[in-house]
């Protein structure tokens, strides 16, 4: 269950502001988020993931109130419980496919890298058709293969929540379907919640529910005010 209450956020540089009275997403739900650019989709994902702290309000994710946690605790929580997938794949070009998948275990001491993790990484790669490409660098992969590496990296710590920010934007329909299928299968097997931001209306039928983010936030209000959305 994800619950957001009385949430307010504004970037220090000004401009975009987000205001949300209440949003509740049940566990295991596969949710598609749509909306125009600048409507706050990525910002809200970052708030739910604990990457950005809100100005006010509460964010309850996977049984933890994120706003009460210090930054280090939020990082540990995020890396263990939330799988993040980005539009640009965000792979490290100097690491092999296997090392990119294992990256969460190398950058945070709360995760322990051992033989079983390596085996699981290999199995995940095998499941998405990357079994023969483990020693390659991202530059040697196609776009679809890169995104599948990013998916494996997100799934390796077995997160309860998947947050994917336009994961199919740079992919052809076949690869887009393959990536969403991998995410969907994982969510189903692990009863994980999945939130996918997408601009592709053809993909919306794959989700349990969809939300149009255009109804969430004020386009450019001068001050944070009353109102918001109750989803």
């Amino acid at each position: 269950m994800i619950e957001l209450n009385n949430l307010q956020f504004a970037y220090a540089a000004g401009g975009f502001q987000l205001r949300l009275e209440h949003l509740s997403i049940p566990s295991g739900q596969r949710l598609g988020w749509t909306g125009p650019s600048g409507s706050g989709k990525t910002t809200l994902l970052h708030l739910i993931a604990g990457i950005l702290p809100p100005a006010t309000g509460s964010i309850h994710t996977c049984g933890v109130e994120l706003t009460t946690l210090r930054e280090a605790a939020r990082r540990d929580f995020r890396i263990a419980n939330i799988g993040l997938i980005f539009q640009d794949f965000a792979l490290l070009d100097y690491l092999s496919v296997l090392d990119n998948i294992l990256l969460p275990y190398r950058i945070n001491r709360s995760l322990r890298l051992d033989g079983s993790v390596r085996d699981r990484a290999g199995q995940l790669a095998e499941n998405v058709g990357l079994g023969q490409l483990l020693s390659r660098r991202p530059a040697q992969l196609s776009q679809g293969e890169r995104q599948r590496v990013a998916v494996c990296r997100a799934l390796l710590p077995t997160p309860q929540l998947l947050l994917a920010d336009e994961p199919t934007a740079n992919l052809d329909p076949r690869n887009a379907a393959r990536v969403l299928q991998a995410l969907g299968e994982y969510a189903q097997q692990h009863a994980a919640t999945m939130i996918v931001v997408t601009h592709d209306p053809n993909l919306l039928s794959d989700f349990d529910d969809t939300i149009d983010m255009a109804t969430f936030c004020d386009p450019a209000p001068p001050e944070l005010g009353e109102g918001g959305i109750h989803a």
């Binding site: 280090a72 990082r75 995020r78 993040l84 980005f86 965000a90 490290l92 950058i107 945070n108």
Partner: peptide, 20 residues
């Protein structure tokens, strides 16, 4: 910078990034 931002978003501390 992009690599550092990615590592931070995934859950890497500034200390670890500095350590790398």
């Amino acid at each position: 910078k992009a690599e550092i931002v990615t590592m931070f978003k995934l859950g890497c501390s500034r200390f670890t990034i500095a350590s790398v």
